[in-house]
């Protein structure tokens, strides 16, 4: 192998590395996704089935991203982490919705009870 051919080979290998997920490890996306999961948990996502399901999806995506990072596929890992963030945010929104609806139902129940007491 001549010097010229070796140079060409190195360039080609470098080009392939870039093409095959040569992106940097998505630390920032990982932190953001994990923070979103924690926010959803604090927001009560585990207390409502629909929210809990989305939280489960988020955690699965994060786990998949971690596996991809280990494999060196940082690009796909980034996509999974972005999806995980969206799932976690949806989990939080669903938890807030369920809690708000529950509070409203209780308020309605309370006022109905009072009205019954008033009439009796």
């Amino acid at each position: 192998m001549t010097r010229q051919s070796m140079f060409v080979t190195l360039v080609a290998l470098g080009a392939m590395q870039i093409a095959c997920g040569g992106a940097a490890v998505p630390h920032q996306q990982m932190s953001t996704a994990q923070a979103s999961v924690r926010a959803a948990e604090v927001g009560g996502a585990k207390e409502h089935p629909q929210a809990e399901l989305r939280l489960k999806h988020a955690n699965e995506k994060i786990a998949a991203a971690e596996a991809l990072i280990k494999e060196g596929d940082n690009e796909t890992a980034t996509l999974r982490l972005r999806e995980a963030e969206a799932d976690a945010e949806l989990a939080l929104a669903l938890a807030l919705k369920e809690q708000a609806k529950k509070d409203a139902e209780q308020a309605l129940k309370r006022i109905k009870l009072l009205m019954q007491e008033t009439q009796s």
Partner: peptide, 15 residues
């Protein structure tokens, strides 16, 4: 998911 979350936020705010 953003759209679903938006719908949920709307319902939460209304509730």
């Amino acid at each position: 998911r953003r759209a679903l979350a938006s719908a949920a936020m709307g319902e939460a705010a209304k509730a």
